[in-house]
Write a protein that binds this DNA or RNA. Structure first.
Lengths: 212, 212
DNA sequence: CCGTACCCGCGTGTATACACGAGGGTACGC
DNA sequence: GCGTACCCTCGTGTATACACGCGGGTACGG
């Protein structure tokens, strides 16, 4: 019954490493990623590197350039698309969380909410905001939805890896998280779902406004 | 500007082929897929085969067995999870379609609806039902959502590749499609979304009941 | 001087060779 | 007869070798 032997081969190693680096914005936006170069950089052969690149392309994080690959920074239209999907899934997750969240889930969310509220720097608050959302997905107890949202938000992260665009009104963000949390505590799926929709819609608005 | 050079390499060829075969249930449920065997079967080297298998695993269609890979037929719980995600996304797509569908979209949907209504065999109606849904995704004009739904339904297809479980009440299915189509024609997002939710929820119910 | 054609270098895609690890079968000892 | 240990086979993961295609640069002809 010991299925799914967790692979530690170089392919997955490189995959994780590359993914991390791409999301961290380690590669200049327009630059091309050659498998030969990367093989040298990460100290391996081309084969596992290419497999990792294939996976990343499949994830939508990379796209094929004329010569190699390049980081895929979606168009603003893509961002809107992704947000539309995220809206649907994350509001569903919020509803599910209102129904299924455990005390542990709620405590974790409350903790992260506090951290987000009192974060020091802007990037720190951004990270905490993201952790709050991740915790909420977990509280929804649906691995499929969680997985999709992970991929979607990854694409968003590379999109705005350049300018650390400031969150608009941070108080509003806190208030929205508060609404969501309250709905979860009340086990009110509709309220949670609606609050999440509003939260993300405003987030998208902000993003669009920043992109003008 | 001629990006994304469409690859016709053996990796993607094998990927498509394998995916097709897996979805068609070409491999007995418990059987293992060895890359050596597959390489021989499809007439190629192991390298592109393994890359294709990697991709399929990444899609969640395959999982690693002790020795090779095997078709991943999810548990009933997984099916419920997938349906939950599908519910969120497809009702969102229905809403979007109500807002954005073109005349062409609506005509296509009407055509498929008719075909589905008058289908001969059961498997034929099932296929037409699926095409109707695909057309609806297209009508939503959100490639991200369409892509995710494609993957999700693929997982569902392999799940029930074994017994061609009969659709329950086919008249109900037609009526539901009719409701959706009407809402789209009226450009009423809420109605479309709600109708789609009901449709899928009943579909899930049916599936669960069949699995008992 | 400009256009075209050829050549070369580079990067990729595929095949093959090699090393490692796991699993099973067999043979030997108790 | 049963248990254990060793070996062998098989499949995978990785590296390397090879062939193809493309793009640029250069040289030659108009």
């Amino acid at each position: 019954m010991d299925d799914a032997p967790r692979r530690q081969d170089r392919t997955t190693t490189f995959y994780r490493q590359l993914r991390e680096d791409v999301l961290a914005g380690a590669f200049p936006v327009g630059s091309v990623l050659l498998e030969t170069t990367l093989a040298e950089r990460y100290g391996g052969s081309r084969t596992p590197i290419r497999e990792a690149l294939n996976l990343l392309e499949h994830d939508g994080l990379l796209e094929r350039a004329a010569r190699g690959y390049r980081v895929r920074s979606g168009t603003p239209e893509d961002v809107v698309e992704i947000y539309e999907a995220r809206l649907a899934l994350e509001s569903e997750a919020a509803g599910a969380a209102a129904r299924r969240s455990t005390d542990l889930d709620l405590t974790r969310l409350a903790h992260l909410h506090e951290r987000c509220r009192h974060g020091e720097s802007d990037t720190e608050r951004r990270a905490d905001n993201f952790r709050f959302h991740e915790a909420l997905w977990r509280a929804g107890h649906n691995a499929t939805i969680t997985g999709i949202l992970t991929r979607l938000t990854a694409q968003l992260r590379i999109y705005d890896s350049g300018p650390p665009a400031a969150y608009g009104d941070l108080d509003v963000l806190d208030a929205e998280h508060d609404d969501i949390l309250t709905a979860l505590r009340d086990h009110d799926p509709d309220a949670a779902s609606t609050a999440m929709r509003a939260h993300l819609r405003r987030s998208l608005d902000q993003r669009i406004r920043a992109t003008l």
